[in-house]
Amino acid sequence: MGTGVTWLKCPGCRLKCRPAAVGAGGRCRRCDHDGLLRLTLGGREVQLVPETRQG
């Protein structure tokens, strides 16, 4: 299993961004939705981002 590229996608407004560009608390910067989807390209992972963000 190789390394993948991770993107986050908002199901509300369809904004796609890198994890470093997510708003406060892991929310969408455009519409403030809190259930962003984690998309990993080059891997097989698709999951919801946890509500609390470690950083």
Rank of each mutant, 00 (worst) to 15 (best):
Q47T: 12
R27Y: 01
P50D: 10
L37E: 09
R29F: 02
H33P: 01
T3D: 00
L8N: 04
R30G: 09
T52Y: 00
R29D: 04
R29S: 14
G35D: 06
G25R: 11
G26W: 10
P50C: 09
R53W: 00
L15D: 08
G35P: 05
G4F: 11
L8K: 00
G55A: 10
K9H: 03
V22L: 03
G43L: 01
T6L: 06
C13K: 14
R30Q: 13
D32G: 08
P19T: 05
L8T: 03
T52N: 00
T3P: 01
M1P: 02
C10Q: 03
R14V: 10
G43H: 06
R44Q: 14
H33R: 08
V49D: 01
R29W: 01
Q47N: 12
C13P: 13
L41P: 03
K9D: 07
C17M: 15
L39H: 06
H33Q: 12
K9Y: 07
G43K: 01
E51C: 00
R44I: 13
C17R: 05
P50H: 08
C10Y: 12
R29V: 12
H33L: 09
D34F: 08
G35H: 04
Q47K: 04
D32T: 07
G25N: 08
R29G: 15
G26H: 08
P50Q: 10
G12A: 15
C28N: 04
P50R: 15
D34V: 03
R27N: 03
E45T: 09
G55M: 02
G12P: 02
R53I: 07
E45H: 04
E45F: 00
R18E: 14
R14A: 14
E45R: 13
L39N: 06
L15W: 12
G43Y: 05
G43V: 05
P19W: 07
G26M: 03
G23I: 05
V46P: 03
L37Q: 09
L15V: 10
G2P: 15
A20K: 10
V46Q: 05
C17K: 09
R18F: 04
L41C: 08
V22Q: 00
C28A: 06
R53P: 05
A24S: 02
L48V: 04
P11G: 05
G12L: 13
G12S: 15
L48W: 07
G25S: 00
R29P: 13
L36W: 07
V46S: 09
M1G: 12
T40N: 10
L36I: 06
T3C: 08
P11L: 13
V46M: 04
G42P: 00
V49C: 02
L8F: 06
L39C: 06
G23C: 06
L36R: 04
R27K: 09
P19S: 14
L41V: 15
E51H: 02
K9P: 02
L36V: 03
L8W: 00
G25M: 12
L8Q: 05
L41F: 13
T6M: 12
E45I: 09
D34M: 03
G42F: 11
H33C: 12
T6E: 14
R30L: 15
G2Q: 11
P11Q: 09
L48H: 08
V49S: 02
G43D: 05
C31T: 09
R27W: 01
C31N: 10
T52C: 05
